[in-house]
Computed example of a mutant assay.
Amino acid sequence: MLESEPVDVLVPDVGMSEMDGYELIRRVRGIARFANLPAIAATGFARDDDARAAMEAGFSAHIGKPVLIEQLAEVIDEVMRVQHESS
């Protein structure tokens, strides 16, 4: 889907069934044109260790579920701002 659709930010669930979010982000980061794509790990695992693992895997941010749309919008704004500043 990333290859065929324009994407501004990726927000996968970490606990997907066939491939977890950590493997997904490793694969995405391995594609040169998506190396800096803002990506937010959405997960029910919201401990500090979980956030650290998400960042180490290559996510731009981590957000615990359940999440309010306002919280998600704030995190999206932040990762987009950081990405814009670093370009």
Rank of each mutant, 00 (worst) to 15 (best):
E3W: 11
E5Q: 05
E5H: 14
E5P: 07
P6S: 08
V7Y: 07
D8M: 08
D8Q: 10
V9A: 09
V9H: 07
L10N: 01
L10D: 04
V11W: 07
V11N: 13
P12G: 01
D13E: 05
D13Y: 03
S17M: 12
M19H: 15
M19K: 14
D20N: 15
D20F: 09
D20H: 10
D20G: 15
G21S: 07
G21T: 02
E23P: 03
L24S: 10
L24Q: 04
L24N: 13
L24I: 12
I25Y: 05
R26D: 13
R27D: 09
R27F: 08
R27E: 10
R29A: 05
R29N: 07
R29L: 11
G30D: 04
I31C: 10
I31E: 15
A32H: 12
F34M: 11
A35H: 09
A35Y: 00
L37A: 02
P38A: 04
A39H: 05
A39T: 03
A39D: 04
I40H: 06
A41H: 02
A42Q: 06
T43L: 05
G44M: 11
G44P: 07
F45H: 14
F45G: 09
R47V: 13
R47C: 12
D48A: 15
D48P: 10
D49Y: 05
D49H: 06
D49K: 03
D50F: 01
A51Y: 09
R52E: 13
R52T: 13
R52I: 10
A53H: 09
A53N: 14
A54Q: 01
A54T: 03
M55Y: 06
E56W: 03
E56L: 10
E56R: 07
E56D: 15
G58L: 00
F59H: 00
S60R: 00
S60K: 01
H62P: 00
I63G: 05
I63W: 00
G64T: 11
K65S: 04
K65A: 05
K65E: 01
K65Q: 00
P66G: 07
P66D: 04
L68E: 08
L68W: 11
E70A: 12
E70W: 08
E70K: 06
Q71F: 06
L72I: 05
E74S: 14
I76D: 12
D77F: 08
D77K: 13
R81A: 12
R81S: 09
V82I: 15
Q83W: 08
E85R: 15
E85S: 15
S86H: 12
S87C: 14
